[in-house]
Design a protein around this nucleic acid. Structure first.
Lengths: 341, 341
DNA sequence: GGGGTGCGTTGAAACGCTTCAGAATGAATC
DNA sequence: GATTCATTCTGAAGCGTTTCAACGCACCCC
């Protein structure tokens, strides 16, 4: 029992294959009677349209390729979910690839997407994929960079203003009276890490009497944060910061746990703590964590929209969309909002 | 500048299109000279093979469809990663769909996969998709159920023995001397939740003098765990369990945080705690959490292997592969491993 | 020199769909 | 009754690949 095709349906419904195709794609131009007859034939034969043939004819697939740096990072899964929703809405599906920060895998996925003649690609780029994306574009496949601003690259991008995020975090610490701020981060080769630092510096610069110490730790993990927290706790009280901003929530959680162990240091009493990303665990940490939230789902949704616009009109000027992060205030900086305007 | 196709390559290399195809797919049967010439033409034209045409001809795509219940759950992303690795190895790619526990979306993804004539589908089934999968199989698309045993369903499956996991957890609690065990869980309509309970019951039944209390909480979240932990702490000490097993790590983390707040209750001193899933945060919790680990990545990898076997030989008998979970012992039950053989 | 053997190459056919120019039909208009 | 027009349907062409029977050629062997 071979799978039925349009020809079989046409034969059973006693119409031409062209009519079957019209029933499938533009039923409004076919007479109701015929639509009925064809539909019955389709049901009877269990016909399911062959997408490969359709795509071959169309010249491109109904798929959007998305390459993320790390599927295990909630930021990216949220982003992927947003992208999927927007794509589904437009009748497209998303092929999700995980580069795992390997430029080899990144390339492999882009090659795959090119063979598939995808509708477009969304990339959270590892390194310099500009040339590769140029190639895709020449073939008519638009690309949008996600989570990285791409001014001047000739591509559209959606990103979050990390400088603003850093500023937001540290201004909040200053607003609640902290004067000796520390920024805890590792992996300073990530632009996100340095952008957040820059924001922190700007906030400090705007407030005389506030100092900023940068603590370079070993990575962006809970364990690195725990070690850093222990080191802070071991300092004489006078040399400890009274406000700590970390490059992400994982570090903050580690710091928090180290401080809770040394129960003589209280959060936020002695040290107020602000993380970044607002992961699920921020809300449910031992001391609920103030954090900077990125609109990840919105990022994915918007990226797809930019992509579709460019697919429709390839000559369109690239646009850089920068989202503003949002500060979520919780107990680790004194809980309910106290704003000083 | 239209994209080059095999015909263009053939013309430039002065060979037939059949030869170009052979260079692409079976270079060993083409003379080295010709391979060179064709390769140069390919490079010069920037030719990239059109996958849609290839698939149309082949009758099926080089893609495996995977539908998971929730991409945000690390268990599934790990599983997906395992599946991707195995698929890549076999020259296939994975189309990842997130049903988000909606049977409508589940159906939509299966429809999509059918249109795509995917090589096979992996499903962590929401409800009864048996009939739907039967339909796919009739069309030559094999299916493997993941994270659910499917004995007697006619399909292969990979799953983890949750009964064994529950037994493992509670036997460990008993082995370290606990006698009043509590099982904290919500959502008792999930088979995983009840299977783990069954394992716990078996372990208790095998040890006279040990009691098991089942505490039904509101969901499987950190917050639900926190509430349950507070309730435990509020009990008179004599009525508190001395060993707690939770249906997942999130609950355990919540319990842990509630207990740590009431600092008169020590973990593991007063209450030993075992979670389930071994999420990243288990290792880095305030008190590192003993947990039952599921080989999620291996699950994905194995599922793909079963699928490929069935794709190669459709008459193959379905197989049910059940993995054994593993207990990871950490500080919440007394830390370094103490094994009684 | 006829017949066999292998190697490398050829090119038409087929995969299943969509599209589109044109045919068929019936109704409306002069 | 001829003309126009709208509506509905037809069927061949074409998308770009893989496959496969057939072909040419060189070589070897009696």
């Amino acid at each position: 029992m071979a799978a039925a095709n349009v020809k079989d349906v046409a034969a059973l419904a006693r119409v031409s294959i062209g009519t079957v195709s019209n029933v499938l794609n533009r039923p409004e131009i076919v007479s109701p009677d015929t639509v009925d007859r064809v539909q019955q034939a389709i049901d009877k034969l269990g016909f399911v349209r062959n997408d490969a043939a359709r795509q071959l004819k169309a010249g491109r697939s109904n798929t959007i390729g998305l390459v993320v740096l790390d599927v295990r990072n909630p930021f990216f899964t949220d982003l992927a979910r947003g992208a999927q929703d927007a794509a589904t809405e437009a009748g497209l599906s998303v092929l999700l690839g995980d580069s795992g920060r390997s430029s080899q895998r990144e390339k492999a996925y882009l090659d795959l997407f090119e063979e598939q003649r995808v509708h477009g690609v969304l990339v959270s780029p590892l390194s310099d994929v500009g040339r590769r994306l140029e190639g895709l574009r020449r073939r008519g496949i638009p690309a949008v960079l996600v989570d990285r601003s791409a001014t001047g690259s000739g591509f559209s991008s959606v990103s979050v203003d990390d400088v603003a995020g850093g500023r937001l975090a540290v201004e909040h610490l200053i607003a609640i009276g902290r004067r000796r701020i520390a920024y805890l981060a590792g992996s300073f080769d990530f632009s996100q890490v340095t952008d957040r630092l820059r924001g922190a510096q700007e906030a400090v610069a705007a407030h005389p009497g506030v100092s900023l110490e940068v603590v370079d730790i070993d990575g962006l993990t809970v364990l690195a944060g725990y070690a850093a927290g222990e080191a802070l706790a071991a300092r004489p009280a006078a040399e400890r910061p009274d406000g700590v901003f970390t490059a992400n929530d994982l570090i903050a959680v580690g710091v928090l746990q180290a401080l809770v162990m040394y129960s003589n240091i209280s959060v936020p009493g002695d040290i107020a703590l602000v993380g970044y990303d607002d992961i699920d665990f921020a809300e449910t940490a031992v001391v609920p964590l103030t954090s900077v939230r990125q609109p990840s789902e919105l990022l994915g949704k918007t990226a797809v929209e930019l992509l579709l616009d460019e697919a429709r009109d390839p000559s369109r000027e690239p646009r850089q969309i920068v989202f503003q992060p949002e500060l979520v205030i919780r107990a680790s900086t004194g809980g309910p909002i106290q704003r000083v305007d």
